[in-house]
């Protein structure tokens, strides 16, 4: 489904991503891990088109995304969350989803309704997504008034509002307690069941190891290992990259 070929991004002399080959299959939950500064977020940003790549290609179902603007990539079915939550804080929870909303393929409303429709036109569908996200009773609150966990859930819901085929989660568990991580794990599995493909960037190893199908490990922008969670856990190079064991990194974040 997603195919990165020799992808690279240099910031001046910093080689944030440096020759990344990666292929994610449809319906997979794919983990992308690596130490701080290894280029995980940069990879997500490249796939979303936040900045252009220095070299390499990004293909989604054989469509070259490389030259498309960020909003066009969403039309092709890519969406994301941010490592540092970026909600529209002064908008209501409901409006956050309204802005990102895209009708399911084949059920599109007219351009006119899409732009100038009133909340009533979408009330029902968006409320359903809110209920799913455990935010049913928060609809009319300003997004900034939500608790941290709720904000994370809203950002996830906003990423789902565009009906993506591929959803990129950049450290969705950062700052969460174990209960919230368990809830997140269920949500990610539900996304998979709904037919979405997930790229999970994460430092919380319990989550990554228990939920992903395959993992790529980055170090200094280069892939140093690829395999199933079990293979990665037993890979010496990976353990070295994490300065000892994966558990340390988890504790450090």
């Amino acid at each position: 489904m997603l195919k990165l070929t020799n992808l690279a991004k240099y910031f001046g002399g910093v080689r944030a991503v440096d020759g990344l080959d990666m292929q994610i299959n449809k319906g997979e939950i794919f983990g992308l891990i690596g130490p701080n500064g290894s280029g995980k977020s940069t990879t997500v940003n490249l796939i979303c088109g936040v900045f252009p790549q220095t070299a390499g290609t990004i293909e989604l179902d054989n469509v070259d995304l490389g030259r498309l603007a960020p909003h066009q990539r969403i039309e092709f079915g890519v969406s994301r969350t941010f490592q540092n939550i970026r909600l529209f804080g002064d908008l209501t929870v409901w409006q956050n989803l309204w802005v990102a909303w895209r009708d399911a393929p084949g059920h599109e409303t007219s351009w006119l309704v899409n732009w100038f429709g009133s909340p009533a036109d979408r009330r029902h569908e968006i409320q359903k997504l809110l209920e799913f996200s455990g935010l049913g009773d928060r609809a009319d609150r300003p997004a900034s008034s939500l608790s941290f966990g709720e904000q994370r859930r809203l950002e996830l819901a906003r990423a789902m509002a565009s009906k993506p085929k591929l959803i990129l989660l950049d450290e969705p568990a950062a700052g969460m307690n174990s209960e919230e991580v368990a809830d997140l794990r269920n949500r990610i599995l539900t996304m998979k069941n709904l037919g979405m493909t997930v790229l999970l960037v994460e430092h919380v190893m319990d989550l990554v190891m228990s939920v992903t199908d395959r993992i790529t490990v980055l170090n200094f922008g280069k892939p140093i290992a690829e395999g199933t969670p079990l293979e990665i856990q037993n890979n010496e190079m990976v353990q070295e990259a994490y300065f000892g064991s994966a558990k340390n990194v988890e504790a450090g974040n």
């Binding site: 909003h71 969406s79 941010f82 909600l87 802005v99």
Partner: peptide, 9 residues
């Protein structure tokens, strides 16, 4: 950035 990433042109 968030708007763009939510599909806004």
């Amino acid at each position: 950035l968030a708007a763009q990433s939510s599909g806004v042109n």
